[in-house]
Each structure stands twice: as C-alpha cells, then as structure tokens.
C-alpha cells in the first residue's frame, strides 16, 4: 500500500502452475489464490471472494470440460498487474461455453430441485471481468479483479 492508501504495486512476475484435474486440489487452489490476492494488496474479505471465484472456474474445468476425468491438467496463471489481479484457468477438455447458460432464476432452480448452475453466476458477481475463449484446443477462463475497489461484490 502506498502512503495515500491506494494499493500501488509494481507488476510481479507471473505465477503459473499445473494442477491435476481432481477436486481434492480445490482447497489448495483456494488457499493459494487467497495468498496471491493478499500479496496483490486485496483485503482478507476480497481475497476470500477471489479464492471462491478461482475455485468455481477450476471446478468447471474439472467437472464440465474434463467430465470428471482425474488424469488431466488444469493450468492456472496468476498475473499481478499494477491495477488488477488477473487469473487464467486453462484446460484442454471439451469446448464449454458458459455464456450459453441461461441466467440464474433461483425460484425456478428451487422448483426444479437443481443443485448446479450457480458457479458462473457467482464468478461474475465477484469479478470485474469474466471471459471465456477457445484457443488451439484450450479453454481459457480469464478472471480479472481491479485493485481500486470498484465493481464486483461489496
């Protein structure tokens, strides 16, 4: 933090890691994200929400792109830029475009006894930007959170 109270940091080198496509690694990924967010200058509450968003994106890669196959890899990249923290979650599984999902209607979900369909919505509520792209057989989910505190969840 600078003396003015605004988080001003020089850009950090990118952290990149490959994690087996198993949900048993989600807790570790959440803890790592929390730590990276704290290093980037986010407070504890915001770091917790960022950890949740990365958990959700990784869960989507494991459950949907890889259909639960445990022997694949999910690539994560944490990029602490001056004004934002950017996290990319990448898989080489089936094409999944969450933008095709209908908007969340809790009352309808309850009636239908649905247990899924909340993850992308949660990510979008937490992050300033959530984008999905397909590049050379890879799904890349890019999560961005600005450091100025504007946008996203309170």
């Amino acid at each position: 933090m600078s003396g003015s109270g605004r988080p001003v940091r020089s850009r950090q080198p990118t952290l990149s890691l490959a994690v087996p496509s198993q949900t048993s690694y989600l807790a570790m990924i959440s803890e790592l994200t929390r730590h990276m967010a704290a290093l980037a200058g986010f407070d504890e509450a915001e770091a917790g929400r960022l950890a949740l968003a990365v958990d959700e994106a990784t869960t989507n890669a494991i459950k949907h792109a890889y259909a639960g196959a445990p022997d694949r890899l999910v690539q994560l990249r944490f990029d602490d830029r001056r004004d934002e923290l950017r996290v990319e979650i990448e898989d080489t599984g089936a094409t999944v475009d969450p933008r095709n999902m209908p908007s969340v209607d809790l009352d309808r979900y309850v009636k239908q006894r649905r247990t899924g369909g909340l993850g992308v919505h949660l990510m979008e509520k937490i992050m300033d930007s959530v984008t999905f792209r397909r590049v050379s057989g890879r799904n890349i989910c890019c999560l961005v959170k600005r450091k100025d505190g504007a946008g996203g969840a309170p």
Partner: peptide, 10 residues
C-alpha cells in the same frame, strides 16, 4: 462454494 449452495438449493 456453489456446490454447497447447490446442495442446499436442491
């Protein structure tokens, strides 16, 4: 996470 929220919702 949403998995737990989904369990409550379901």
């Amino acid at each position: 996470a949403s998995a737990g929220l989904g369990a409550l919702m379901g």
